[in-house]
Design a protein around this nucleic acid. Sequence first.
RNA 1: GCGCCUUUAACUCAGCUGGAUAGAGUAACUGCCUUCUAAGCAGUAAGCCAAAGGUUCGAAUCCUUUAAGGCGCGCCA
Length: 589
Amino acid sequence: MNHIASASDQVRSLILEALGRLVADSLIPAEPLPDFTVEIPADHAHGDFAANIAMVCARPLRMPPRKIAELIQSALILDDSPFDKVEIAGPGFMNFYLGQRWYGDVVRSVIAEKEMYGKTDSGAGKRVLVEFVSANPTGPMHVGNARGGAIGDCLASVLQAAGYQAEREFYINDAGNQIEKFGKSLSLRYQQICSEAGQAVCKAAADTEQVCKMIYGEDGKSGEFPMPEDVYLGQDIIAHAKNFYDLHGDEFLNAPDEERRKALVAFALPKNIQGLEDDLAQYRIRYDTWFPESRLHADGSVQKIIQQLKDSGYTYESDGALWFKAQELGADKDFVIVRSNGIPTYVVPDIAYHYNKLVTRGFDRAIDILGADHHGYVPRLKAALTALGVDASRLTVVLMQMVAVMRDGKPVKQSKRSGKALTLVTLLEDIPVDAARFFFNLREANSHFEFDLDLAVEKSSSNPVYYVQYAHARICSLIKNLADGGVTVPPADRAALQLLDTTAERVLIRQLAMLPAEIDAAANQLDPSRLTKYSVDLAACFHKFYDACKVRDAESEQLRDARLMLCEATRQVLGNVLTMLKVTAPEKM
RNA sequence: GCGCCUUUAACUCAGCUGGAUAGAGUAACUGCCUUCUAAGCAGUAAGCCAAAGGUUCGAAUCCUUUAAGGCGCGCCA
């Protein structure tokens, strides 16, 4: 039950009814009315809902706003409404104040609806595919993937809570140039290991890890084991080569280049993909689908898309390559889809992939979580979909700004190529999953994010996740204490709940009431960080209530029971939100 | 050169479709545990909302210009 939305709707209809009476009594002229807003004022001294009807009517009615407000007020009938009173304030705002019954109803709803409380059906069962992380399987995941993971996973949860049929998907780039590069890198490392110098290292080193370190050297490419420019240098590549060597010895050393690379990729790639799956599982992310790019090549989708693009008339040949007229469809410039060497560029599988999502599999919407460095590519992808006759607005790309990793107050360079970037796994060795997920979801995707390593490693109370978890643990402990004394949470009782009338109690209840509206807002704006912020606010409301109101030693048993119900409702809501964020809700800390 | 993003307190950031005296958390300083978890609460101090114009009853929010920073602009992915 969304008590906020329903109260807000009632403000609107009460005003419209009042205006109708005023017109009927000829107290105001029958003019068409402009739109007006009903909002929740920042300061609750200004009521629980404020309407600007009088101000927006000033011009068409040619009357001062406060005068209009007074007329409307005199015509309002508040009986049977959730409101106690209406006041006129400031330049002509009409401030509506909720009555005690409304507050009690919120608590009753939460307790009755339990883990269902907060869910809405705004999504009307529409099928949405959320694709996120989709990290390159040629190496480990980095900090940016950690952010994308937290955002994408929570967004999917939020959409589900808002009544969408949301699925999570990981797109595996297991084809194309980067796989070539992967093979080349593995092959070179394998050859190095087979070499005399490599064998010497293997004998001298105690284990594979040490072999990797020694071969990697200072920067991964110099010293005894030089590497060219266009390869992956990370130690994980060396480890794969070494493991492959341990299995096969040098039997592939003199094999044709192509064959050696193929064997190495076939050996290493599945391991990497499994690694991604394991690491993400540790990060509490489980995908509905792992979709391999190679499938689109194998089933002819890529070739078919090229033909369809040609048929659309939006292609032309130039310099022996096939170009797509993206500019005519809103993108910044045209781009190549098939190189002069006959190999399609990376965008083609991408187009085929999104076509697969929206047409072949028939999702109503596709949402991609991408790093901001891909922003230039989005209009191109959309242009291609448009050419294919797909409504491009069904694809929404949520861009996340880069994560700036800070150590000792200075930015840490994230070099992907040298393999020295901070990995998700390393990160999770230092900070708990709860903290990482919460932290990466604290800011909206579009905000530039500063990740302070020293702070994250600290595990200190400055991390807001503890603040929220503490509120939950505090309630659990409180309820347990009372239960030990024979006092259990009573069945929702309307009369008792009327007693919750102090500021702290009412503020807390209003915050409980906000959950469904927050979920809808987060789903509409594709911004799951709203829920994280909501949980912090809710925890703050509870801590204040806890400080201001005694439960066990309340003035009366009835009040004690009412407060106990409020605690239970708060525990429920905190739990519901933390579940969505996949952060644990501890019973004690 | 062109495009996208950002600029709010000492630091990290909120501020919903324009609304009433600009918010939180850190850090600083003051108080509050013989009573339900002090990982908490209350308070003090801290701001020319990057700058300048414009739109209107009303602007941190919308428009234009400027400045600073980040990221893109390949027959790489």
